[in-house]
Design a protein around this nucleic acid. Structure first.
Length: 405
DNA sequence: AAGTGTTTACTAGACG
DNA sequence: CGTCTAGTAAACACTT
């Protein structure tokens, strides 16, 4: 729980700062993406973000350094070598100093009222492909909330713990053509309405993957039945049952990993699961604000496929992967599965309806800083207003950012 | 070596 | 008050 740190506003204050008032980052994040062609096939890091987002007239902050804050992992930084980045890097140091001053006298060191789960989810939702690496999650959070530029070891450990511990996060293995450290993380397709009450402090109910639970129970049962310690390995090969083979696999703790390569049109062998899925859809429809995009049968099928744990492709790219993988986890697929409009979608968290606020915030001296942020978080689409500027290291409209590079 | 991922244990606050 | 969720610490294994 988000225990309020000293001097921290509590209770309703925190709640009202919640992001449930935001409405629409999704517009840019999804709709525009579709037409912009493949994302950068390279590392799905800052490069992928900025490449994609820039095409949408926004973009994760180019990497040009964070004014001495946290640097992006080396492997990712090169991606930011755009002209824009260069310009940002060339920002005069006076401006940086100004920002630092403003930074120091701001409230931004207060702990944000969002749980780590919320933050991770935000990070995933705000990425063009709904998948992020751990490093990207770190960077996203630090970019957004200056509070998290301190004590990194502590909260990053918690982030890792949250990822592993919570069923709502699913690990997506890297493909051989995208080497690098760590896997991608995405949201479990059914985890969309964890925060349906609009409160990002505490979920109404923890998301539990029932299948995983069942598997876990079965494993424990098996362990009891066969007291041989050698066979007790619970991190088991998730493919021991046909069903397990088609679901995000589970470790003893419930962490999921999507397994690679499943036939793309495999219908769910489990009718109950499909029913569950439909129920999920049903719920979402009730919760949706004006549906940005109705779920068509095709989408349903895609969703169902992912629901079965079809392998996620970090960044589907035209013909960069074998045909056998080409149809899986396209960005559209992931976006469809991860709640185009569900209440916790980033579109509900971040709105561009508060640009005046952004400007005010920029006037406080944050714009430059932000433009130098390394990860490529879309700047034009996040509302500090609704996130609470006390915590939020704003993203501001990037007037100077070229619409395309 | 550093980063990543998993797991366990403990604590605290929210909630019914 | 019991349960649940969340935050933190720490140990350990694995990967790059």
């Amino acid at each position: 729980m988000l225990s309020a740190p000293k001097g921290y506003p509590t209770g309703t204050t925190m709640n009202t700062m919640g992001m449930n008032t935001m409405s629409s980052m999704g517009g840019m994040n999804h709709a525009t993406y579709t037409g912009t062609g493949p994302v950068n096939p390279g590392a799905y890091s800052a490069s992928a973000y900025s490449g994609t987002m820039n095409g949408m007239g926004s973009g994760y902050p180019a990497a040009g350094g964070m004014g001495g804050l946290q640097s992006y992992p080396a492997g990712s930084v090169n991606a930011m070598g755009t002209m824009q980045t260069m310009n940002n890097m060339a920002l005069n140091r006076n401006a940086i100093a100004e920002r630092e001053k403003a930074y120091r006298r701001s409230y931004t060191h207060a702990k944000p009222p969002y749980s780590y789960i919320s933050l991770i989810t935000m990070s995933i939702q705000s990425s063009p492909n709904k998948m992020v690496t751990l490093a990207e999650i770190y960077q996203f959070i630090m970019d957004l909330f200056p509070y998290y530029r301190q004590n990194q070891q502590r909260w990053q450990n918690s982030i890792r713990h949250s990822l592993s511990f919570n069923d709502c996060f699913v690990k997506v293995p890297r493909t051989p053509d995208r080497p690098g450290k760590g896997s991608y993380w995405t949201l479990h397709p059914e985890a969309g309405n964890m925060f349906e009450n609009g409160c990002y402090l505490r979920r109404q109910k923890r998301f539990k993957c029932e299948k995983k639970l069942a598997m876990k129970m079965a494993q424990q049962q098996a362990a009891r039945d066969t007291p041989n310690p050698g066979t007790e390995n619970t991190a088991v090969a998730p493919t021991t049952t046909p069903e397990a083979a088609s679901t995000p696999t589970t470790t003893t703790n419930g962490a999921s990993t999507l397994q690679p390569l499943q036939p793309i049109n495999t219908p769910s062998p489990n009718p109950q699961e499909q029913q569950q899925h439909q129920h999920h859809q049903h719920q979402q429809q009730h919760q949706q604000q004006p549906p940005v995009q109705t779920t068509q049968p095709q989408d349903m099928q895609q969703h169902a496929q992912q629901h079965q744990g079809l392998p996620a492709r970090p960044i589907p790219q035209q013909s960069s992967l074998p045909m056998s993988m080409g149809g899986y986890f396209s960005p559209e697929h992931l976006r469809a599965a991860h709640g185009f409009t569900h209440p916790f979608s980033i579109s509900n968290l971040m709105s561009q309806e508060h640009k005046p606020d952004l400007k005010e915030y920029a006037a406080m001296g944050y714009s430059g800083y932000n433009s130098m942020s390394p990860t490529g978080v879309p700047k034009t689409t996040m509302s500090m207003d609704s996130m609470g500027t006390d915590y939020y290291q704003g993203y501001v409209p990037q007037h100077s950012q070229p619409s395309s590079l």
